[in-house]
Design a protein around this nucleic acid. Structure first.
Length: 175
DNA sequence: CGTCAGATGATC
DNA sequence: ATCATCTGACGC
């Protein structure tokens, strides 16, 4: 679960339904492959924090840093909005009420930009990650949009999605 | 259903 | 030059 606490009683709550794993410098699809730079530095920091970057000059993609100092992170690719719909609807152009299928949409609703990198996600305030309920079926498949990676990394099934959730992008590319 | 172009800007 | 995307426009 992902909670946005704007401090005005209009919090947004969303269920994470699609993710991708980026394993570290040895993963040719992972940003940390270039080593420590101003942009990738957050990935080498402590886990449980955010890594946000601007993608294609338009979309801010939201990641959760996972490894200790290893440059690993999880990209949040899809969510279902379960609370604060009124707040969200204004921000979205899509028609499906609570489905945020695609990392750019998730980032837009979260209202993040790269200045959110390093934000602590396990304490109240701003954006908080909470434990959700167990899920019936999780499907997996290759990651999306990483064609320039080595074939081995490109084909690795490191994308995970809740079966039949409307918040999952590219459902046809799951195994 | 599929593919494709264009928008758009930080990065190294 | 590259790029972890989205949308709308096509064609089948």
């Amino acid at each position: 679960m992902l909670c946005v606490e704007d401090g005005r009683g209009c919090d947004i709550v969303m269920r994470i339904v699609e993710t991708e794993a980026y394993l570290g410098p040895h993963d040719s699809a992972c940003h940390s492959k270039v080593g420590r730079t101003p942009r990738t530095e957050p990935m080498f920091g402590p886990p449980g924090r955010a890594y946000v970057y601007l993608c294609y000059g338009i979309h801010n993609l939201f990641n959760i840093v996972t490894g200790r100092q290893e440059g690993a992170a999880v990209l949040i690719r899809g969510c279902e909005v379960v609370g604060g719909h009124d707040r969200v609807e204004v921000l979205r152009s899509g028609r499906d009420r609570n489905a945020l299928a695609g990392p750019g949409k998730v980032g837009a609703v979260l209202g993040v930009d790269p200045s959110w990198s390093d934000h602590v996600l396990y304490r109240p305030g701003g954006i908080v990650v909470r434990k959700g309920s167990p899920v019936e079926t999780i499907r997996r498949g290759p990651r999306i949009g990483i064609d320039s990676a080595d074939a081995r990394d490109r084909d690795a099934p490191l994308r995970f999605a809740v079966d039949r959730s409307p918040g999952v992008s590219h459902p046809g590319r799951l195994l």
